[in-house]
Design a binder for these strands. Structure first.
Lengths: 249, 249
DNA sequence: ACCTGAACACCGTTCAAGT
DNA sequence: ACCTGAACACCGTTCAAGT
């Protein structure tokens, strides 16, 4: 029994062409997908691939570079899971698009972690995929009468709102604690007036289904009226403030 | 010269009442404030306080508990840096409030890291402070004619948007790279139509000043019209979609 | 050219003491 | 009751080799 124990067995040296960037990327993606992005560490990945930890560094300069490449893969997968509607009004198109946007990230934690949570500059490839998808939505908005610039701002607002929503949702999910007790969240805070007179339960998290839908619809309402204003809609005259709105009777 | 070297000098044991939770909290807050929240580690903090690392664990069960307490402090500081406007229209009030909301977090990285980036359940104390501030804004909305529930949704939308904006901004800032080259961001992506015809520079980051202002104003516009709809404004009849809007001429 | 283990400088946290 | 160092199980990364 001079055989070294399992634990201390040094792996036999692998052949020269036996690893590749693709293989590492695939293993990393799988590991993160099965467990979580947090669980992805260089040692764990090496173990899974049956490779020396340092070998990974020959193919990826750093963990960040590996994550960037994983994000490319994630962006392609995100793109594939979209089904764009056709022949609907621009606002229905946008509504469906961003509901789906949220749904895909909600159902796939890894995509959300790589693309939403790790937000920042993308690789050119990931950037390309995103740009082409965004351009389609902008096209719909421009066809509806928005200028290209306004269309871009409209997309930006919704994108920031939806990603903000996903980000905050994740924060509460990660805490383990379920959302605050729906009612009674503010029960023992003195000096409150409105918060204690809500007729439906609201939570501090602000990431309920209703919160999402309200935000989405309100943004669309704003855009609808912006479009009308830009087209010199005769009904409401330059309504900057509610009380300034002049109904043309 | 039998004196042990500086490096290896064991700290002399401290007296029994010589540390306190407050002192640790203060030191942690200062360290994070001077450097960054990332730079705050238990060993670094202990070193700064001239205390054994493990001593901290007598006062705080974990680093997370320390961070939660720091967030309480941060929330109080955030609250103090607010100056609420008076005697202005509800939408001007909300506009000023959320511009300030963003500005405070932008100017104080630590507050942003503790309150925005580390979003999730707050301690009861932090929760209380936030609830009281939010209640003031809701009061203004209710006075303007919104129902308490709608007021809460309105706050939620804006809060999620602004925090989303701050979160994304931080992601791009952390990357070190300045934002993408304003124009030419999509220059070499084939098949683009709208993105290549923008008359002003937009960036992939979607967190420019203009993006923020557009989102804020658009949300306010949506809310203004929602208020009008709810009050049975005679001008636009149940305008769920732009094409459904019936101008009453 | 590719793969490797040992080593480095860190983490957060536990534990069995010391006083 | 409070403070402590040693130790544990991790990180990401570098370096000087091996083949």
């Amino acid at each position: 029994m001079s055989t070294p124990t399992r634990k201390n067995t040094p792996r036999k040296r692998r052949a020269r062409g036996s690893i590749s960037a693709e293989e590492i990327l695939h293993g990393a993606y799988e590991l993160a997908s099965e467990e979580s992005l947090d669980a992805l560490s260089m040692p764990r990945l090496a173990q899974r691939l049956d490779v020396g930890v340092t070998s990974i560094y020959w193919y990826f300069r750093s963990k960040e570079e590996l994550l960037d490449t994983m994000t490319e893969k994630a962006m392609a997968e995100f793109d594939r899971s979209f089904t764009l509607s056709q022949d609907v009004a621009w606002d229905e198109y946008v509504r469906t698009y961003f509901r789906q946007f949220r749904a895909v990230f909600r159902d796939n934690e890894l995509l959300c972690d790589l693309i939403v949570m790790r937000s920042g500059p993308l690789t050119p490839e990931a950037s390309r995929i995103a740009a082409q998808r965004i351009d389609l939505v902008l096209g719909v908005l421009v066809d509806a009468g928005f200028t290209p610039d306004t269309a871009m701002f409209a997309y930006s607002t919704l994108s920031v709102f939806v990603r903000g929503h996903l980000f905050l949702e994740r924060g509460w999910a990660a805490s383990g604690r379920p959302d605050l007790p729906p009612e009674g969240a503010f029960a023992n805070v003195p000096g409150l007036s409105v918060l204690t007179s809500l007729s439906q339960p609201h939570t501090m998290a602000m990431v309920s289904e209703d919160d999402f839908e309200f935000g989405l619809e309100n943004t669309l309402r704003g855009l609808r009226h912006l479009l009308a204003e830009e087209a010199d809609e005769p009904c409401v005259v330059r309504a900057r403030n509610a009380k300034d709105a002049v109904p043309v009777v």
